[in-house]
Simulated scan of single mutants.
Amino acid sequence: MISTWAELRDFALSLDLPHVTDAVSWGNPNLKAHGKMWCWWSPYVDAAIFKGSRDEREMLMAADPETFVMHPHYANTGLILVAGGRIDPGWAEARLRQSWRDAAPKRFLKEWDAR
């Protein structure tokens, strides 16, 4: 299980996806993919933040409320918060790969997929 920002950062970078960079937004470290925020750790609650949808977040929270958590700051977004120490690497990898693809320009993905 992934427990901290340092572990999540190292894990995400180990996927060796291109166009991923370290960044700081609103005073907090994060990783960006293709210039867009990709994953980060919440400054409000001990949880990683992944991109998703509200419907998916609600489903995940209903299925496992100890793992998938919420803070009022994120209530109006589709972001998915996963409690530190409960982040499954397999789930995180699939989520990161999908959000990396979602952030990529279409022309880049066409070339990437052709390889």
Rank of each mutant, 00 (worst) to 15 (best):
M1W: 03
M1S: 14
S3E: 11
T4D: 00
T4R: 03
T4Q: 01
W5E: 01
A6E: 13
R9Y: 01
D10C: 04
F11W: 08
F11D: 12
L13E: 05
S14H: 01
L15R: 07
P18A: 06
H19E: 15
V20D: 11
T21Q: 08
A23R: 05
V24R: 08
S25H: 13
W26M: 14
N28E: 02
N28Y: 00
P29G: 11
N30D: 07
L31E: 00
L31Y: 00
A33C: 04
H34R: 03
G35C: 07
M37S: 14
M37Q: 10
W41Q: 12
W41K: 06
W41G: 08
V45Q: 09
D46H: 14
A47E: 05
A48C: 03
A48H: 00
I49G: 15
I49Q: 03
F50H: 07
K51G: 14
K51H: 11
S53E: 07
R54V: 11
R57S: 04
R57E: 03
E58R: 09
M59V: 11
M61L: 05
M61T: 15
A62L: 11
A62P: 08
A62R: 05
E66L: 07
F68L: 12
F68P: 14
V69Q: 01
V69W: 05
N76F: 03
T77H: 11
I80W: 08
L81N: 01
A83E: 09
A83H: 09
G84R: 00
G84H: 01
G85M: 05
R86V: 03
R86P: 05
I87D: 10
I87M: 14
I87T: 07
I87G: 06
I87F: 05
D88F: 03
G90L: 07
A92P: 06
A92T: 02
E93R: 15
E93Q: 15
L96I: 14
L96S: 10
R97L: 12
R97T: 08
Q98M: 02
S99A: 09
W100N: 04
W100F: 08
R101S: 07
R101E: 08
A103I: 05
A103C: 09
A103P: 07
A104I: 10
A104F: 10
P105D: 14
K106A: 15
K106T: 12
K106Q: 13
K110V: 10
E111D: 13
E111F: 05
D113A: 02
A114Q: 09
R115C: 10
